[in-house]
Amino acid sequence: MAAAPALRELQRDIETQASALSKVQKDIAKNHQVRKQYTIQLGENELVLKELDILSEGANVYKLIGPVLLKQDLAEARANVRKRIEYISAELKRLDGTLKDLEGKQNSKQEAVLKVQQRIQALQTGKSKS
């Protein structure tokens, strides 16, 4: 009969572990979503930079600010786009590091859940034999 309280304790433990695992999985999904947005922005900005590089030095470049198109210097436009590309690339690198950490946490949480499941199974098997 001492197995019943131990079993309840293990079930509470597995619920806690599963909840923590679920949270980490949600964080991973969120990271993937943000990374996807940054990847799209990076592609768009690289395309803009290619287009700006094609232009001759005297070309007119306009920047959309709200509902208004403002004339912008070509060199300034190129510099702004390059800065944006640097920023996005740095964010992607940061997100990759965060993702590796989250995947490590996910693996450890999965192992913890598996160990508790094995303990529950062993306890139930031992209980049914007696």
Rank of each mutant, 00 (worst) to 15 (best):
A112E: 02
A75V: 12
D96P: 03
L52N: 03
L47M: 11
N31K: 07
G58A: 11
K63Q: 15
A90Q: 08
D96W: 08
K26V: 11
E46W: 10
S89K: 08
R82L: 14
E44S: 12
R82M: 13
K100Q: 09
L21F: 06
V113G: 00
A2D: 05
V81P: 03
G58Q: 08
H32L: 12
V68P: 00
T39M: 05
L69F: 10
E46G: 10
H32T: 09
A79C: 07
G66S: 10
E15F: 10
E76A: 15
Q117N: 05
A59C: 05
I85C: 10
Q25Y: 06
E111M: 15
K127L: 12
G97F: 08
I54A: 14
V61I: 05
Q37E: 10
K105V: 01
N31C: 10
K36D: 06
Q33F: 05
L10K: 01
L123I: 06
I54N: 09
S130P: 14
N31R: 06
A20K: 02
L123C: 02
A4P: 00
S130T: 14
E57S: 15
G126E: 05
Q110F: 15
D13L: 15
K93D: 11
L7N: 02
A77I: 03
E57Y: 09
L114V: 06
L64C: 07
K109S: 09
A77Q: 03
A112P: 01
G58L: 12
L74P: 02
I88K: 01
G43E: 03
A122R: 05
I40A: 11
L70V: 15
E44P: 12
A20D: 02
T39D: 03
E111R: 14
Q33Y: 05
E103H: 09
Q117S: 07
D53F: 13
R82V: 09
D13R: 15
T98C: 08
A20E: 04
L92K: 01
Q106E: 07
K30Q: 08
A79N: 07
Q124W: 00
Q11C: 09
E9R: 09
Y87G: 13
V68N: 02
I120G: 00
Q110S: 13
V34L: 06
Q72F: 12
A77E: 04
